[in-house]
Every structure is written in C-alpha cells, then in structure tokens.
Design a binder for these strands. Sequence first.
DNA 1: TAGCCTTATGCAACAAGTTGCATTTGCCCA
DNA 2: TGGGCAAATGCAACTTGTTGCATAAGGCTA
Lengths: 175, 175
Amino acid sequence: MSLRAVLLITLQREPGTGYDILQRFKAGLAHVWQASHQQLYRELDRMRSDGLLTCETLPQTERPDRKVYRLTEAGLQALDTWLAEPLAASPVRQPLFAKFFAWERWPEQARREELTAFREQLKERLTTYAAIEREWFSEPQALTPAQRAPWHTLRLGQRLTETWVEWVEGVMEEE
Amino acid sequence: MSLRAVLLITLQREPGTGYDILQRFKAGLAHVWQASHQQLYRELDRMRSDGLLTCETLPQTERPDRKVYRLTEAGLQALDTWLAEPLAASPVRQPLFAKFFAWERWPEQARREELTAFREQLKERLTTYAAIEREWFSEPQALTPAQRAPWHTLRLGQRLTETWVEWVEGVMEEE
DNA sequence: TAGCCTTATGCAACAAGTTGCATTTGCCCA
DNA sequence: TGGGCAAATGCAACTTGTTGCATAAGGCTA
C-alpha cells in the first residue's frame, strides 16, 4: 500500500507523469522512497483503473505521448484514510549485520572491501542530502510548518547516515 | 537471497528446526532479521530441495515431528559465495517520512497519536536490545573478535534507535 | 469445562518488488 | 556516421513477503 500512498501524496502536491515522479524520487524524495520506473507505470495504471487518478494523454510530436495523472476526489479520500491510520512497524532486515554473525567465515579482504564500498555509499548519500538541503531548504527559519515538516525528515536522514558512517569507521579502525 | 543467507548463517552456527530459528529471530537476532514462520518453512524446504540443507525428522509422541535442518557442503559453499560478494545498496522506503510531506492533510490528532505510538515502539525496541546485551554480551572486554562482531551490530542498532527517539521527541515538542 | 497459549508444521492465494527485454526519436560527441 | 544517452512508455516472468486458514495435543486459567 505504501507505494500507492506515496504516489497519492506526490500527485496531490502536483499532477505529473510517471517519468516526472521518477525524477522527484531521484531528487527531492531520495530519502523517502525509491521505486523503479516499471513499478511506477504499473501502479499508476492500477490506480487509474481503481478510480483514484485520472489520466490525460498529451500527444507529443516525435516522442511517446506524455500521460499526466492527477488525483480524483476518491484519490484524495484514499489519501486521507491512509493518513488517519497509523503505520505498522516495519520489519527489520539488515543483511550486512548478518555477515557480522559469520565473522570467521568472512574473508578479511572481502570484509575490508565491502566496508569501504559501504562507507562510500553512505558518503554519497550525505552529498545528495546536502544538495537537497541547499536546493529546497536553504533558509530553515523562513519555512512554514508544512515546509518545515519535510525538512525534518531530511535532517533525520542525515543524522542516521552520520551515525552509520561513524560506526563503519569505528569497526574498520578496530581491525 | 538474503533470507536464504541468514538461514545459512544461523544453521551454520547450530543446526535446528524452523521453529528454533523463529525463536532465535525473536530473541538474539531481533535487530538483524525478521520473518514469518510460513516464510521460514517454505524457504527451508526449498533450500533442502536445492541441496543446501539436509533434513532429519525426529518423531515426537503426541506432537508434530520436529524437522532438524543442517548445512551440507554445498550449503557452506553457498554461504562463502554470498559472503564474498558485496551487498547491493538497499532501497529507501520510509512511509512515515511520506506522511510529513502531506503535513496539511495529516490531522493533528492522528499525527500526535501516531508519533506517540511510534516512540513507544522505539522504546520497546531499546528494551529488547538491552535484554539481548545483558544476556549475550555482558562483558564486552572479554569477547573474542568473532563474538565482538555481532556485538557491534547491536550497538549500532541501539544508536540508530536512540537517534530516532531524539528526533521524534524533537518533532513532537515543536508543535 | 470451555477457551486461549505454546509447540510444531504447512498450503494457497495474493501483494509487492526485481529483472530482462522492448519501442521511438532527437541530441550530443567522437 | 555510428554509438550512446535522454525522454517516455510498457509487458512478462520471476522472486520475495504477507495474509488467511488448517491441523493436533498438552497445559493453564477463569
């Protein structure tokens, strides 16, 4: 259900095509949700056939048509229903942690390489976060409450990632 | 693949039944992996039919038979292969963050209730962590490297959860 | 003594996510 | 002038995870 909810939210803010949404996922929503384009197109079509969205096809010369989706009344209502009910706790799945439970069988070189690569991923993520913050939230004091809320999520994403980085570096040093 | 890998690791440490593994998931591995019993039984059967596990049925009077699984040579090799290759970055999916992007439509009371319930979940998790730490890692100085590794994962789980708690409380205060 | 919890297993249907492949045109770079 | 990238869409097959239901016996508790 959550992908559907995320789509309802992004389309409520502004109507758009599958491709548009994908770009928003890559840029401003990188710390919120990720999905493949195949998944998006399929889900948008299902939501349309469930009456949550309307679809307007804009013919383009020389390119595939753009299909602009926007919320219907039923879509807005589905969003409100979802907002009103609390989320279930998300299940824990940390394959990296699992490797730590097989420490003796985890070859030292593989370990080093994996941890190094992992740290690089984390640092890239921090770079992305910084870019989003510069672009969207350059003056936190001037934000309205509704703008401030997403800013909070970004801050948490940053703090969690920093905690991960510290931990990885601590583990790497200990060897 | 990761569920399979986690099963290989837990059975490599000690053979056991689906039910056993479920108990380990609930107790010592709560911050590493969670899965339903249905998923476990199905996956164990598949792994057996793929030759990664053997299965010995211990008949019990008055109760359903216990099926004890243990690694085969192929199972060990599959584990080593998995350990040697680095993990892919895991996709981000934070439905709670999504709600923050619909701040205006998120009714205040629902918001308060959700954040309060969420904080309680986090605190319960911290309690679980503390119990695991007491039971398995009461003397961190005395740990061998192989024992110390899983301890690290627990520490990170704790720190991440603490960061979440601080954040939720900060957000709640701001209203 | 009826009803729930624990032990112990599993099937079947469904929902969600991944992987591989496919189309069409314009633009940029080598 | 050939090759890849970006824009824009999508189908089909597969894997992974969830939900609902089922069985069967003993122990605990109201």
